[in-house]
């Protein structure tokens, strides 16, 4: 059984068809990277998985269970999400950003979750910032906190929506390093990214999307080094200067 199964996923915004029928599975422990030009539907596909966008048609299964409006809140506890713009809670300290979900959604024990949150902050190298507020952190630090926040919920999979696109270039590395560590530890990850280097190094599978379809998919080597489709070749020739 796949961890995520996407069947016949379609999404329109008014008259604009963004996704025109996506079928895709994500296996446990797999790192799936989604690449493609802007407007190709990559982020929309990711956001449909945890229903931040409601699919127009099609089905999403997590651990074999169909995601619906009714069970979405509990399903989301299995799927962490990391956003392009971090979206940390500015009125909460770094530590509280990590604990607010588990405390309120999972009714976790406060002492235990604080201890766990501190360990996660240590893991992303930010234990010293536990009592700071997000506004006092750099973009790279904020994104590492956002990853730790997702991990604090013990998710089975983490969805990354262009996690390094809003970062200054010198901060991209620190965030990618944290993501690489996660991948090594066997975390299932779906990553929408423009970082081809990351995709080549870490992904088990890469899909190239364009115009609302998956145009090409396979190993990073196959898709990124030896693309078959003209559109993939064209896109890669532009991004891999």
């Amino acid at each position: 059984m796949s961890m995520i199964e996407i069947k016949g996923l379609e999404k329109s915004f008014g008259d604009l068809e963004v996704l025109k029928g996506i079928d895709q599975n994500v296996e446990e422990g797999e790192v799936l990277c989604i690449v493609g030009p802007s407007g190709s539907g990559k982020s929309t596909m990711l956001r449909c998985i945890n229903r931040l966008e409601e699919p127009t048609a099609g089905e999403i299964y997590i651990d074999g269970e169909l995601v619906t409006d009714k069970n979405i809140d509990s399903m989301r506890t299995k799927m962490g999400m990391v956003f392009q713009s971090f979206n940390l809670f500015p009125h909460k300290s770094v530590l509280e950003n990590l604990t607010i979900g588990p405390l309120n959604v999972k009714k976790a024990n406060e002492a235990e979750i604080k201890e766990k949150a501190m360990k996660l902050l240590e893991r992303v190298g930010l234990a010293a910032k536990a009592n700071e507020y997000p506004r006092n952190l750099s973009g790279g630090q904020q994104q590492r906190v956002a990853i730790a926040r997702a991990l604090a919920m013990d998710p089975e999979v983490i969805l990354f929506d262009e996690p390094t696109s809003a970062l200054d270039p010198e901060m991209v590395g620190e965030v990618l390093d944290v993501m690489k560590d996660l991948a090594k530890e066997g975390m299932t990850m779906v990553v929408v990214t423009h970082e081809m280097g990351f995709a080549k190094e870490v992904a088990n599978k890469v899909i190239f999307m364009d115009g609302g379809y998956i145009v090409e998919q396979g190993t990073p080597d196959a898709v990124l080094n030896h693309p078959q489709e003209a559109r993939t070749k064209d896109f890669l020739s532009k991004v891999l200067v």
Binding site: S85, N87, L88, I100, G101
Partner: peptide
């Protein structure tokens, strides 16, 4: 309030 705040909260499983 930025709509990303609501999305981040909902993505943690909050109602």
């Amino acid at each position: 309030i930025d709509k990303g705040q609501m999305e981040a909260a909902r993505s943690l499983g909050m109602t």
